[in-house]
Design a binder for these strands. Structure first.
Length: 602
RNA sequence: GGGGCGUUAGCUCAGUCGGUAGAGCAUCGGACUUUUAAUCCGCUGGUCGACGGUUCGAUUCCGUCACGCCCCA
């Protein structure tokens, strides 16, 4: 329901009130801004209310010529500029910017300029020549497209005529249909599109002529009454309109949209302007993260943030990115996982913690791997890996229900029924199921495993033990077959240096991985909280590293020290958020669910 | 790292068995006062990814490279 979309009995009545209200609001903003640069930034981030969410007594904002030039604006602009200047003063940031601009060699932008852009630059120049700001920021919306459709979508022409409602809408012009003395335009805001209806005789000859020079892609603001056209489309009968932003670059084809995947990833802004499906992927992504936060918050988890730059990269088996801290003259690593820090927190008494944030792994790219990706990691004390599996199952179902309203969904053309109990198999079972000729009695025989690997064409290292060899076989032959949701558990200790050993069978750990659509989505285990066992496992990793295994872990003495103070019995979980989003948005590539996926520079 | 495919107008795509290229949409000019990808008329618009080779002639054939996508390691 649009707060401001109240019937305006007398359009001109209350106009001054509206103006006064707007000015008062701006005065408050100005006051906040006077508290200094820091205050302004915080105000923008946190404090400044969205004008759309604040109710005002009258829906009408008044004609634009009353809004351009007041003291408030000049003052605000001056302050804003000085803030930018402050940020840009000296320092390496400025240097870098300058360098980038210089090395840009006669501005690469110009090179790709064409007639269409030149045309629009000409229009912008004409706009500047008129005086007044070419990019004004004093237009305010009173309604969004989606609100209007929601509130008036069911109303017929007669009702709308009997209840005149004046609104101001703003957005990017997506379609434009001019036919002589009347024109239609569709403008898009974050909630959808609404049609504008313009008549020359209603907006005036000059404004109408201006409008005709505007282009699809321009951002406009319009004020008028809600009505329904002859064809029945809910529209705004424009009384006044303004060009707010001249768009210099033409949008992709209005019908075919943007198909070039490279451009969709590199210029995501264009993709988002044009492709509703793409916008929806990222909305769904946000809903998924929100769901998980709600899920964990309801269980009294504490959300925390742990270092992204670590002196010792730990918590996973992966190659890290290296960076350098100048003041400390110290190499640091972008984290490959937050695990060891989160468990320090469990030792510290935060015995239900989670973090949703980026990890960085210096490895290849694929449809399932981006160098930076988002993980949910959580730890809870007094629980084991079976409890975690139950939670994963519950959360996956809850997500399906929340996002799709159903436990049955389709991913890449295949049906998934999440309502059935998720399958649980051990690593060794999974190997046997997918390798009929595998000798079950030789399951842990290094010589046999080595030969089997060689037969499969898996490169093996001389120091690989039976556990590592098992996992190689599992990954090669079984992983991609696990389409329906499956927990694979009982991972070898050899490849699980942070997992608790199984009480009955120390070859194994109490660890699982969760597979869906043939790929790993989550990894969880009962945590190894025996400091002496952990120290021994770290030593074994260091030995591997010394033998040339770049992915082996470092010895983290402080982490062992934390365990020596005592960490309660704990279970933990890591969930690959990007892959989860892929599944629930039916996206074939991880790049489809990351706003700015890693690409080689243009 | 290996293999396959792709790169042509702003966008979406054709095409040239080797003779320097087309369509739709967009742009530009014109007509049109209720359109829905508006319609109609007219005009523009290209280093055919880059470099090299073969050839009288290469966007087309060959090679190398760049970028992208897919598969494999």
């Amino acid at each position: 329901m649009p707060e401001r979309a109240q019937p305006a009995q007398e359009p001109l009545d209350g106009h001054e009130d509206a103006e006064g209200e707007a000015l008062r609001a701006r005065g408050e903003q100005a006051q906040r801004r006077r508290q200094g640069a820091r205050g302004l930034e915080i105000g923008r981030e946190l404090g400044q209310p969205d004008p759309l969410l604040r109710s005002r007594p009258v829906p009408h904002q008044g004609p634009e010529d009353r809004r351009g030039g007041g003291q408030y604006h000049r003052g605000a602009r001056r302050r804003a500029r000085s803030i930018h200047g402050g940020l840009a003063q000296g320092g390496p940031v400025t240097d870098m910017t300058d360098k980038q601009q210089d090395s840009g060699a006669a501005s690469p932008d110009r090179a790709e300029e064409n007639k269409l852009i030149a045309e629009r630059r000409g229009k912008l120049a004409a706009l500047r020549g008129r005086g007044g700001p070419a990019f004004p920021n004093d237009f305010r919306r009173t309604a969004l497209a989606g609100q209007l459709h929601g509130a008036y979508g069911e109303r017929d022409r007669e009702w709308l005529e009997a209840n005149p409602t004046r609104v101001s809408v703003g957005g990017r012009m997506m379609l434009k249909r001019s036919q002589g003395k009347v024109s239609f335009a569709n403008i898009a805001d974050r909630t959808g599109q609404i049609q504008l209806f313009l008549q020359r005789d209603a907006v005036g000859e000059e404004a109408y002529a201006d409008f005709k020079t505007w282009d699809v892609g321009d951002i406009v603001g319009a004020t008028g009454l809600i009505f329904r056209t002859n064809a029945g489309e809910l529209s705004v009968r424009v009384e006044s309109l303004r060009l707010l932003v001249k768009s210099l670059r033409p949008l992709p084809d209005k019908w075919h949209g943007l198909a070039d995947v490279e451009m969709r990833y590199r210029q995501r802004y264009v993709d988002l302007i044009v492709n509703e499906a793409s916008r929806n992927v990222f909305r769904t992504r946000a809903r998924i993260v929100r769901y998980l936060r709600d899920f964990l918050d309801a269980l009294d988890f504490l959300e925390v943030e742990t270092p992204m730059m670590q002196p010792i990269p730990g918590g996973a088996v992966a190659r890290p990115f290296v960076t350098h801290h100048n003041a400390l003259d110290l190499d640091m690593y972008l984290r490959i996982a937050p695990e060891l820090y989160l468990k320090r927190l469990v030792a510290g008494g935060f015995d239900r913690v989670y973090e949703i944030n980026r990890n960085f792994r210096n490895e290849g790219l694929s449809t399932q791997h981006n160098p930076e990706f988002t993980m949910l990691e959580l730890y809870l004390a007094y629980a084991d890996y079976r409890d975690i599996m139950d939670w994963v199952e519950k959360a996956i179902r809850g997500l399906a229900e929340t996002l799709h309203g159903s436990q049955r969904l389709t991913y890449q053309g295949r049906e998934y029924d999440l309502s059935r109990p998720f399958r649980r198999v051990t690593v060794e079972q999974a190997i046997l199921e997918n390798n009929p000729d595998f000798d079950p009695l030789s399951m842990r025989d290094p010589t046999y495993l080595r030969k089997f690997c060689e037969r499969l064409g898996i490169p093996v290292h001389p120091h690989d033990g039976p556990g590592k060899l098992q996992i190689e076989i599992f990954e090669k032959t079984a992983e991609h077959t696990l389409m329906d949701p499956t927990f694979v558990h009982a991972y070898p200790a050899e490849v699980s240096p942070l997992s608790r050993a199984n009480d009955a069978d120390p070859f194994l750990t109490d660890r699982f991985e969760f597979f869906l659509a043939g790929r790993e989505l989550a990894n969880g285990f009962s945590e190894l909280n025996d400091p002496e066992d952990q120290a021994a496992r770290f030593r074994a990793q260091v030995a591997r590293k010394e033998r040339g295994d770049e992915e082996a872990m470092y010895y983290d003495a402080d982490y062992v020290r934390a365990l020596e103070y005592g960490m309660p019995p704990t279970a933990g979980l890591g969930v690959g958020i990007d892959r989860l989003v892929m599944f629930f948005t039916d996206s074939p590539s991880i790049r489809d669910v990351i706003l700015f996926p890693h690409m080689r520079p243009e």
